[in-house]
Each structure stands twice: as structure tokens, then as C-alpha cells.
């Protein structure tokens, strides 16, 4: 099981709205589209209306109306996050498809408008988001671009050329081999014939990935982020990361990446497995032990992993007896 992640959201939804009558009903539609819980949406809309009335009396109707629109838009990401958190898996899939459609619509429209016949029409970075490449490698790394035609079909790379143009001095070969010798941002131009794309290369070299050597989690227990720390040459934490987390046995535990780039470790079934975090060209390896809930560890059989809830106050002591296994020889 392998999960890739990027530490920043891939893109932002841009919303534009005109100020006109019936804003409240539009905001209500927005909340409904975002899948907000009706009681939750009611509370938010009620607050907006109440504060709008107060501001209209104090600052005038026009100022209050602008406040209302701005506040509704400011609230939208939080409401979307809340809707996603509380939605069923099916609903989450629908929301994801909805968000993806909103994000992809401009690209699809451009391709439809300027459609071609299989000739290279777009250069898109194959690492990170479209024009933003995070490099955590210390050793030289090959930049990767996808060549697309106007319909969005991937074409073979027939020789994209690269050159550094601004920012921190980073060696960039014409074939796109980059060596992040220091942290910082650089601008790199990628070109293929008449096509040129400007990329922001975010050099964030990671010298070490520090992690616990052993993780213990419980089936049905809280889902936690994979605990690791990526550090640079000065031992400072690196926050912009691209990498992969691999779990050896996905029947025991899995890693899911959220839209915010968090890597959540989920226990599936009791057992042991290994987890590998790879950032740039550095790795961290962890043992993962998954336990199933039980009321007592007494009578535990070889190979079993049991997690027993314990509740104690000052002066309390609990005791359990564990049997030795029979002699084999």
C-alpha cells in the first residue's frame, strides 16, 4: 500500500460573486452545495443575518451587505471542511468529485476553446502542482514534465529543455537535472518548441527523516498522523514536503492522505507490519504493531496483539497474570 502526499493543498477554489438582492438565499444554496448539516447551516445563516442587521443599523446597508458576502465567502472553506469531516464515504466521494470538477473546469474550458489535433499544447509539471515543484532531494534529481495535447492526452516527451532564470542559484541542466544545494525558491523555464512554462522550484532539501522506530495503534482507535519529522542541514524542521509512505501489509494498517496533505495511519487488523517514509532521497523505517481491543490480556495466545483499556486513580493498582508457554525442547 503506497500513499503519496504533498504538504500544501493543490489549489484553491476561486469564487466570484456579485452583490445583489437575495444574497441570503444564494448563501443558503452555497451551504447546501457544500453539503453542510442543515442545523449547522441554520446556525451560521442566523448569525450572518443577525450581525448583518446590527451592522446595517450602525454602518449602513451597503457596508453591511459587503460584510455579509465577505463573511459568507470566508466561512465557506470551514463549512466545506466540516461537511467533508462529517459526511459518509459515499458523500465524501461526491464532494471530492464536485471539488475536482470545480478545479478542473477552467483547464477543460481552455482545452475546449483552443483544441488542437494532437500537437503539444501544454507542459505540466509531473511533480507537485502544475507550476510549483517541491524538491526535498539532496542528490541531483530529474525534473519531470508531462507534454499534453489540446485534448489533454499525454504525448511522449520529445526533448523538454530547462533553464534557470531567477531566485536562489540552483544548478539546472538543460535536460532538467536539478541539484538543490541550498533551500530557497528558484524560477525555472521549461520549453518544448514554442511552448514555454515557468515553474517555481521550491528547494527544501531534507537531510534526515526522524521517526519513532515503533508505532503501536489499536483497531477502532483514533486515527493519527504518521509521526515523523523531516529536518534540513541545520536540524530545522522542513514543512514543505513531497514523499511517499509505504505500508508493507495493508491488511494490518493503511495510510490515507487528506486533502490538506496529512498522512493518517489507520489500524485495520491486529498484527505487525512495517512502514516506510521516503522524503526526497531519505527514508525512515518504522515497525507498526496493531492491537485488537480486549478486556484482559490474560489467556493471550502466541501471535495475538491485545489492547486492554485501563482506568486508574491515585493509589490504584491492577494486576494480570500471563502464562509462560510450554517448553518446546
Amino acid at each position: 500500500m503506497r500513499a503519496s502526499f504533498a504538504s500544501r493543498a493543490a489549489a484553491r477554489v476561486r469564487a466570484r460573486s456579485s452583490v445583489e438582492d437575495g444574497i441570503a438565499s444564494k448563501v443558503e444554496c452555497l451551504l447546501e452545495a457544500l453539503g453542510a448539516d442543515p442545523a449547522f447551516a441554520d446556525a451560521v445563516l442566523g448569525d450572518l443575518t443577525e450581525e448583518h442587521a446590527r451592522r446595517a443599523a450602525r454602518d449602513g446597508a451597503r457596508t453591511a451587505r459587503w460584510w455579509y458576502v465577505g463573511e459568507a465567502l470566508r466561512s465557506a472553506p470551514h463549512l466545506l471542511a466540516s461537511a467533508v469531516r462529517h459526511a459518509s464515504w459515499r458523500r465524501r466521494a461526491r464532494l471530492s468529485a464536485y471539488i475536482a470538477a470545480v478545479l478542473l473546469a477552467p483547464a477543460v474550458a481552455v482545452i475546449a476553446l483552443f483544441g488542437g489535433n494532437g500537437l503539444p499544447a501544454q507542459l505540466v509539471a509531473d511533480m507537485g502542482s502544475a507550476a510549483d515543484i517541491v524538491v526535498n532531494n539532496v542528490r541531483p534529481v530529474q525534473l519531470a514534465m508531462r507534454v499534453l495535447d489540446a485534448a489533454g492526452h499525454v504525448l511522449p516527451d520529445t526533448g523538454v529543455r530547462y533553464r534557470w532564470s531567477a531566485g536562489v542559484p540552483v544548478p539546472v541542466s538543460s535536460t532538467g537535472v536539478v541539484t538543490c544545494t541550498q533551500p530557497g525558491d528558484a524560477t525555472v523555464h521549461a520549453s518544448l518548441g514554442p511552448l514555454t512554462t515557468r515553474l517555481t522550484l521550491r528547494c527544501r532539501p531534507v537531510l534526515d527523516v526522524r521517526a519513532f522506530r515503533m508505532l503501536n495503534i489499536v483497531v477502532g482507535g483514533p486515527v493519527a498522523e504518521v509521526p515523523f519529522l523531516a529536518v534540513d542541514a541545520d536540524g530545522q524542521r522542513v514543512t514543505q514536503l513531497r514523499g511517499q509512505i509505504t505500508v508493507e501489509d495493508s491488511s494490518v494498517a493503511t495510510v490515507n492522505v487528506t486533502a490538506e496533505g496529512k498522512q493518517l495511519l489507520r489500524a485495520r487488523a491486529a498484527g505487525s507490519t512495517a512502514l516506510n517514509v521516503r522524503i526526497g532521497d531519505r527514508d525512515a523505517h518504522m515497525e507498526v504493531h496493531v492491537y485488537e481491543r480486549a478486556s484482559t490480556p490474560e489467556g493471550i495466545r502466541p501471535g495475538q496483539h491485545l489492547a486492554v483499556p485501563v482506568q486508574v486513580r491515585g493509589g490504584d493498582m491492577r494486576q494480570w497474570r500471563l502464562a509462560a508457554s510450554p517448553e518446546l525442547y
Binding site: V44, E51, E71, R74, A76, P77, S82
Partner: peptide
């Protein structure tokens, strides 16, 4: 804080 941020925190 936006109204939405307050409510998501309360939620």
C-alpha cells in the same frame, strides 16, 4: 475569525 471558523471549532 469568520462565522464558519467559529462554528467548525464549536462543532
Amino acid at each position: 475569525l469568520s462565522v464558519g471558523a467559529v462554528y467548525t471549532t464549536l462543532q
